[in-house]
Structures are given as structure tokens and as C-alpha cells.
Design a protein around this nucleic acid. Structure first.
Lengths: 195, 195, 195, 195
DNA sequence: AATGAATGAGCCTTCATTCAT
DNA sequence: AATGAATGAAGGCTCATTCAT
């Protein structure tokens, strides 16, 4: 009783760092970064505030560590894309994978979206912005017109929006995902044809 | 002596409430709601913090008063649209006007966008969400497919995005505005044809 | 009962700033700057810590304000000296006044002496150093030899030392003061004759 | 391989205690005792904080251990002096040796001087005071007049002062040392003649 | 219409220290 | 001989808010 493989409370030891990240994301997402205090996090974990500081240098550091789940896959995707031929198929595959990344990291991304003012001057702002620019550069062709560029950007934000807004909207989730991806695909296809 | 229409510094007197709103918006937009302190606002105005409390009951109260500049015009636009025939031309005009509203209220909207986590539990969240739903309902046709709905929503967010993201992007502002509107228009046109 | 002109506890209001300074000096002198916490100061005053921050921007600021009792008179003395003829009489009078300043600010100066490691990187270090240089420049003549300059400097440090070390030494205070001043005078006189 | 007498970096092993002392003195002297944290020390040594606790019981303990470089030689000097005839030659030799001790321990003594407020309630204060008294007792004769006692004390503080102040002063170091010792000698000689 | 003075709660962070391993 | 993980206490500071004047 109380043991077993459940994710119960007793499984302390060795995984505190992970647990901090989990709880932090949960609370950051729920209440925002500023409004979540380290006291709150530590209380939820039944540790002292000081313990957090053993694992992370600052509050911001906790946040940054969270974002590695998002930035690392994007970096990998961009790297992968650069090695592929710049065909329409590649672009579509990039979009598909991009969508998967965001689908998986929805809570984190939603948090980011809802806390931009905070994120902006927290180093993650710039960090993420760079990734989006990187993505646009991978999707658009070198000398394509401005509208093509806007379309690529719009395709990306459509996926972003899908990851966030569609949660609330009514209807079947998979279906909505499909719709989102479809719209994004169209935009990139159009952009591709323009160049 | 001391009067005149100039926007000079000396024209204190009677308009403090307005000045508080101006400065508050400026700072909220620049740094976020939580990170802007009443001290900061009052210092910028060269008044004491206590003075703010003469004009507004709480910090949140200042924010609420600001949003009346955005919700009122949208309400009026929705009302106007409902009286027009549900034609493509109407929809396009709605989009154009919607774009104008956001172009004018950019700082406020940008602020809202960047502070959702905060806004959310500040009563303004729901308030704005209702307006967007109202807008979608005005753009889409009653029995249109899901993709059409997504397109209308996407058109709206494209404008939102344009008001926000395009500021930073390179290129001529008017041109970028045009591109934004064009993309939005296309989406709504497509949605219109789908129904 | 309880009123009157006594320096009792009830005389709050309007003099809090002063009271903070008094208590702060007392505690800083007694325990050192670092080891004195704002909590301690505020508790002694029966005010909240936040109240301290109404009157002073930072902890260091309290310290700096304390030092104005030392730096302001020195600045005034330097200014005064610059308007006088550069005669021996003037120099002697300057020394006399300098001595008075330090005699009055003994606790503060002693604090400074006992907390050099702290003071050093607290902006007061440099600030005080500048005053001493200013004093030397007032005492020495433009083209006097190096030894004259050293003598002037030595005269100053003699006074400094007198303010600190003589307290502990045995003997009549006035008498010791006199001896200190006498030595300082001799040094400046010698310097004067050299130029 | 890996041994040798070089003071290279690789020679960890067995001398950690010594290395802690070295780094601690360096940092204490540079920043003051309070402002130097054990984290800082351990980081500089590339060890964990806990490692410090293997070698020393407390932070203060590190400091105390440092002072043994000063107190032990003084104790030995006092012990030696007590076995010698109480002649002028002995006293002069004592002074010479005392000066050597301080010349060698300058950084430590300077630290002590700059952190008096801290030292004072750290047990070292009293500890050092006792040694100075011991020294005076060794220098002065049993029934000598008060002035003789003052002279002996003054001789000691002259050496102290020389160790600190002379560093910064201009001029040849050896020469200044000589001057210091000369003055101290004079004082003790005078005292000796008085008794 | 606004100020001066103050509060209470809370924040992020740092520190010396401990202890099982 | 040293580490990894954590603690309890405290520190400086900021904030929204209040209220008598």
C-alpha cells in the first residue's frame, strides 16, 4: 500500500530537478510566470525554496530549461530541412513536423503565447524569434516576393494558433488539427508557386 | 496664460485622469501589466502614487478603463455588419474596418496579446473573446464547413498578427499592411466560396 | 506626562528620517554595516522595513546620507578656503576647522575606519578620498616640493588618527586634542615654509 | 608523473586544507570576511562547499586557522622573551622579531585592520588583544611608570602601522621598514631608561 | 485634487550548515 | 576525502493599498 509503480508522492530522490520542471510548467501555464512564486512551486513539491536554488540558478533559469523541449526539436528540424532539396514536398513535411512539435509542446507554447510581455525580456523571447525566422527562411525561396514571405509566416502562425486556439473551439480535435494543417499547407503551397 | 491648445507640458489641470490612462497604456504595453508598477506610472506623471488612487480605485481599474477604447469600436462594427447584407463585399469591408481599428489601437491590442495570462483572470479576457466570436459569426456563413470557419478565424488572427508582428519585420509599413490585408481577404474570400 | 521637550518615544511624526539615521549610525557603529540588517533598524524604531524605503532608496543610501554630515562640511571648508588668501594663517584655520569637523563626527569616522573593507566598494570610499585630495590641494602651495605635499597629507591623517585612536588612549581629552592639532600645525607650517 | 615540486595546478591531493586557507585569505582580504561566501571559496577551488566542512568546522574556523600564522609566532616570541634576561638588547631583539612577523603576515594583518568591526566579535579580536598585552608585558619593566608603558604600546602600534600604511606610501620599502623599526626602537629604549 | 507617511505581504535570492553516502 | 541534496533563517527590496491632512 502506497508503493507500486504509481506516480505517487513517495518517489522522491534523484528526480527532483524533473519534478521542479513539471510543477513549474504547470503553475506557469496556469497563472503566468510573474504570478507564480517560487514559494508556490516549492510548497507544491514539499521542498524548501532553497532546494530550488540547488537545482536552478534563478527563477528564469527554470523557465529556460523548460523551453529546451521546444527549441531543441525546432533546431533539429531546421537543420534537417537545410539538408533536403528545397522542394514543395520538403516544405510540406517540414510543416507537418513543425505541427507535431507544437502539438506535443502545447502547454509550454500556450504559456509562451500568453506571457509574451514577460517572455520578451527574458532572453527566451529573442531565442524563439530566431527560430521562427529560421523556419521562414527554410520555407520561403530566396528571391520570393513579400507576399510569399508573409504567407510562410502566416502558415507558421496558423500552426501556432492551431496549437492554442483550437483547444477551446468546439469540434473533434483531430479534425481541427487536420484543418489547421491544411490551411498552413495551402499557404506554403501558394508561396512556393509564387517564387 | 497657461491655456492654449498646445500639447505642452504646462497644461496640467483637470485632465489628470486622461494622462494617467495615456501613461499607463504606454507602460503596460512596453513592459507588461504586472511588471509596471504604480510607482512607475506616478513618477512618469510627476504625481504621487496616492494621486492615482484619487482617480482610480485599483490598478486593475486603470486597465479596464483603457479597454473601452477597443471593445466599443468592435461592438459598433459588429452591430454595423449585422445590418448589412451578408455579401462578400460586406465581409471585405468588415475586414478593412477591423484592420483600421487594430491599426489605431495597436498598442492596446499588442499589450493584450502579450499579457493574456494576466488578462485572463482580469475579466477583460472573456470580454474580448466574446468580441472575436462575434466577428467570426459575422464573417462566416451559418452552415459553412469547419475549414471555412478556420479560415475566418485565421483571417482575423492574420490581422491581429499584422498589427503586432509586422511592426518588427523589415520593409515598408504600408506595403506590409497591404500584404496582411490581402492575405486576410483571400482567406475570407475562400471561406465565402466554400459555403 | 509623556509630553514636554524630552526626546522620548512619542515624538514621532516628521522626524522619522532623522530617527532612522540616528539608529542606523548607532547600529552600524556597533556591529558593522553588513551585520546590521534593515529589519534590526526598523524594529528598533518600531516601524516596518518598508517605512525605511519611503525615506531612503537603499540600505547604502542610508549610509551615504550619514556621511553627508562629514562630506558637506568638508566641501564647505574647501570652498571657504579657496576664497581666502593662501597664507599660513588661513592654513592653520583650515586645520582647526577640519579638526572640529572630525571631532564632531567621531562615531561616524570611527565606523568608517572599522569598516574599510566594506566602505571601499560602497562609493563612499572614493567620495571621501576625493575630499582628502581636495584638502591637500588647499593646504599645499602650487609648486611646493613633494615633501611639502607629504607633510600636508600627514597633517590630515594625524587629525584623522587623533579622532579615532585618542578616544581609547588615557589622559585628558582636550589635552590630547591639543597635542594632535599641535602636531598637525607643525607639519603644515613646515610645508608652508618649504614652498 | 604528476608529482614534482612545481606549484602547478595538478598537485591536488593532500594539500586541500592549505589551498582552502590560501584562497580564503585571498578573498577575505579582497572583499572582507562577511562578503566572502563559502560558495565563492569552494568555486575558486573547484570543490564543493561540503568539502570545506570536512577540513574546517565553520567559516569562522577557517579565519581562526589563518590567524594562527600570526598568533603562534607571537606566542613563541613571548615565550622566548620570557626566558631571556630583561635587558635592552633582548627588548630590541624582540622588536626586530615582532616586526619580521608582521612583515611576513602583512595581508592577514591588513585584513584584520580593515575588518575590525567584524573581527571584534569573532573571538579573534580578544585573542589578538591578549597577545598585544603579552607583548607589552614583555617589553616594559615591572614597576616602570605609566609613560614607559605607553611608549612600549606605541612602539608596537608603530610596527602595526608600518605593516599597513607603509605599503601604499611612496619610497623604498626597505628604507621605510628601517624607519619604522628605528622609531619603535627609540620608544622602547626610552621606556627602558625610564624604569 | 493630491500628498506624505506608512503598512503588510510577499518576492527572489543567498548563506552557513548538515548529513547520508 | 569529498559529494549531492537539502534546509532554515535571513536579507534587501518592491508592491498595491490606505488614510489623515
Amino acid at each position: 500500500m502506497g508503493t507500486g509503480t504509481s506516480t505517487g508522492k513517495q518517489q522522491r530522490r534523484g528526480n527532483t530537478r524533473q519534478r521542479i520542471q513539471d510543477v513549474a510548467l504547470e503553475l506557469f501555464a496556469e497563472q503566468g510566470y510573474e504570478k507564480t512564486s517560487l514559494r508556490e512551486i516549492s510548497e507544491r513539491l514539499e521542498v524548501t525554496k532553497a532546494a530550488l536554488y540547488y537545482h536552478f540558478k534563478t527563477k528564469e533559469d527554470i523557465l529556460v530549461s523548460l523551453f529546451e523541449n521546444l527549441t531543441t526539436p525546432i533546431d533539429e528540424l531546421i537543420a534537417w530541412a537545410k539538408e533536403q532539396p528545397r522542394s514543395l514536398e520538403t516544405k510540406q513535411e517540414v510543416l507537418r513536423r513543425y505541427n507535431v512539435i507544437f502539438t506535443k509542446a502545447t502547454p509550454l507554447f500556450r504559456f509562451m503565447h500568453e506571457n509574451q510581455a514577460t517572455i520578451r525580456d527574458l532572453s527566451i523571447g529573442e531565442s524563439f524569434k530566431q527560430r521562427v525566422i529560421g523556419m521562414v527562411n527554410v520555407l520561403r525561396d530566396p528571391d520570393s516576393p513579400l507576399t510569399a514571405q508573409v504567407r510562410c509566416f502566416s502558415a507558421l502562425t496558423t500552426i501556432h494558433g492551431g496549437a492554442i486556439a483550437l483547444r477551446d473551439a468546439e469540434g473533434d480535435l483531430e479534425e481541427k488539427q487536420g484543418a489547421t494543417l491544411e490551411v498552413a499547407m495551402e499557404l506554403v503551397t501558394r508561396a512556393h508557386e509564387e517564387s
